[in-house]
Computed example of a mutant assay.
Amino acid sequence: FGLDDVDGDPGHWRSLAFFPLMPYLMRGVSFVAFLPAEWAGALISLVAGLVFAFAAAALAGRMAVRDGHSRDGADRDGAARDGVRRSMIIAAVVVTTAPMAVVKLMPYTEALFLALAGWGLVAIVDRRWGRAGLLILLAGLTRSTAMGLFIVLAIAVIAGDRRNPRAWLAVAVAPIGWAVYLLWSSAQLSDAGGYFGAQARGWNSEVDGGVATVRWLWESLGTSRETGYAISAVLIVLVAATLAWAFTEWALARVAAWRGARVIAGGNRSSAFVDRWGRCWPVLLFSCLAVGQVLVSDGLMHSRPRLFLSGVLVLLVFAPVLARMRAFDRAWVLAAWVLGS
Rank of each mutant, 00 (worst) to 15 (best):
A92H: 02
V93N: 04
A179D: 08
V103T: 12
L316R: 01
T248S: 03
L149G: 04
I155P: 13
A98N: 03
D298F: 03
G292L: 07
S270W: 07
W277Q: 00
S310Q: 11
T223V: 13
W178S: 14
W39P: 12
R162D: 15
A241Y: 04
L137M: 14
A335D: 11
G8C: 02
H69T: 15
Q199I: 05
V29D: 12
G267C: 06
S287M: 11
D298H: 10
W39C: 10
I236V: 14
R279V: 09
N204Y: 07
G194L: 01
A115L: 01
D191M: 14
W281Y: 14
V274P: 02
R259Q: 11
Y195R: 10
D161Q: 08
T227I: 12
T142A: 01
L59G: 01
A167C: 13
P165D: 04
S30Y: 03
L295P: 06
G278I: 01
N204T: 11
D329I: 06
V333I: 15
R76F: 10
E249T: 07
D67H: 15
A40T: 06
V296C: 07
A123I: 08
R269P: 02
G2T: 00
S270I: 06
L284D: 01
T248K: 00
F31A: 15
L316M: 05
V29K: 09
F273C: 00
A57Y: 09
A230E: 06
V94N: 02
D72I: 04
A336Q: 11
A48S: 15
R27E: 14
C280W: 02
S186A: 06
S185M: 07
L300C: 03
L3S: 13
K104M: 12
G209T: 10
F328P: 09
C288P: 05
V211Y: 13
M147T: 14
G209K: 04
V6R: 10
D191T: 14
G299P: 01
G68Y: 06
V103K: 09
R215Y: 06
Q293H: 08
I158T: 15
G61P: 03
G130D: 07
I236F: 05
A179R: 13
A244R: 05
A257F: 04
A331P: 12
G311W: 05
P99D: 03
A179W: 11
D161L: 07
E110I: 03
W218P: 02
R66D: 10
F1Q: 06
P10H: 10
D82Y: 07
R304E: 05
A272M: 06
V333H: 14
L21K: 05
W277F: 05
T248I: 03
I176V: 15
A256R: 00
A58K: 12
P36Y: 08
V84G: 08
V321A: 13
S271Y: 03
W184G: 07
D77P: 02
I136T: 14
A98F: 07
D72M: 08
P175I: 02
G83M: 13
A101R: 06
A256E: 00
A244W: 08
A33I: 11
N204I: 08
D275F: 00
A74T: 08
V312C: 12
A230D: 04
G2C: 03
A251N: 02
A336W: 13
L182W: 09
L235D: 04
S310D: 11
D161W: 05
S30D: 04
T109Q: 11
L285H: 07
A132N: 07
I89D: 08
